[in-house]
Amino acid sequence: MNLLILLGFGTLQEWQLLMFPLFLAVYLITLVGNFLILVVISMDKKLHTPMYFFLGNLSFLEIWYTANLTPKMLVDLLRKEKIISLTGCFIQLYIFCALGTVECFLLLLMSYDRYLAICNPLHYAKMMDWSYCFKLAAGTWLWGFLLAAGLNYIVATSLTLCGPNQVDHFFCDLTPLLKLSCSDTHPAEMAIFVACFAVSLFPFLLTITSYIKIISTILKIPSSSGKVKAFSTCSSHLTIVTIFYGMLGVTYSVSIGTQSVELNKILSLLYTVLTPLFNPIVYSLRNKEVQEVLTKFLRKGSVFSNLQYYLSSIQTCKKE
């Protein structure tokens, strides 16, 4: 079995031509929004802090996360035969699992950063120096790709794919791939269960613990203005965490409780297509520092002219 056929959205085939411009618009807004966040963070020294360093990592991740799935889905919406090679399927699955893992731990790192800033402000600058931030971020990316490699290896070696080569989904997800196997799927299912605990439930519990301590510390601040100022530094991240884990929880809860394949596909769109869109929207609407820098940045000229100036200044510095 060298080629697989993605069944896409199944009974929603008649809606595909209407879905294409909608998903294309979401994809373009996601790319531009996260790219703008990266440019704004890199160009303003006020945003050269650990919190925005991790936000930059998150925006960079969201660009590649959506690029792994959405372009293929958009192409498939315009054609009848949605074919993907077996190798391409496992590559897509690997990148999907790896970036999903990295995102969970990046959100954890951002909550840890806010915990130190609010609960231990006197030692924050010393503890969260740039060397430590780079190590945390690098470790997160390395852990995500290594864990995904191990999971994909177990799935690929323990399954014997046979029978119909049809994947009942719009991308190569683990569950529909298991249904193609004519061998025992228990080892793969156990590996998936352990991986899900390690990459989603464990960081989620640590993130919740961090925010319980953050909120309890904020409530102890005597002045109301101090409480508002402290909470404003973590409100954007808390919103992103709520959206991410909320969508993930709803999707997997419904997938366990229902046998509707079409409903599961629609819910999968929440965390594969829509979640990467919310990151730049939340941080541009709820974060005053990003709003100020973005407004100043756009007033100076177009995005591309500012980016060209930024790149030319880097080249000038290198020559000097």
Rank of each mutant, 00 (worst) to 15 (best):
L3N: 10
C234W: 01
T272Q: 13
K288R: 10
K126Q: 15
L311V: 07
M190E: 09
V273N: 07
V40N: 03
Y65D: 04
M1L: 08
I256T: 13
L146Y: 10
L238G: 00
E289S: 11
K319W: 03
S131T: 05
C119Y: 02
I5F: 10
E189C: 05
K229S: 14
N120S: 14
F145L: 07
I240H: 02
G10S: 12
K220W: 00
L277Y: 00
I266R: 04
E62T: 06
L61I: 09
T185K: 05
I218V: 15
L248S: 11
I221V: 15
L69P: 00
L142E: 00
F193C: 07
G139I: 08
K220F: 11
I118P: 04
I5A: 11
F202A: 03
N264F: 03
F278P: 01
I37S: 10
L147F: 10
T101P: 03
S255I: 13
S236D: 07
Q13I: 04
A195S: 14
L205G: 08
L108P: 02
L36F: 02
G301R: 09
S305E: 14
W130Y: 13
A98I: 04
A195V: 05
T242Q: 03
L36Q: 15
N68M: 07
I266Y: 00
L12E: 12
K72E: 11
F244Y: 15
S255C: 07
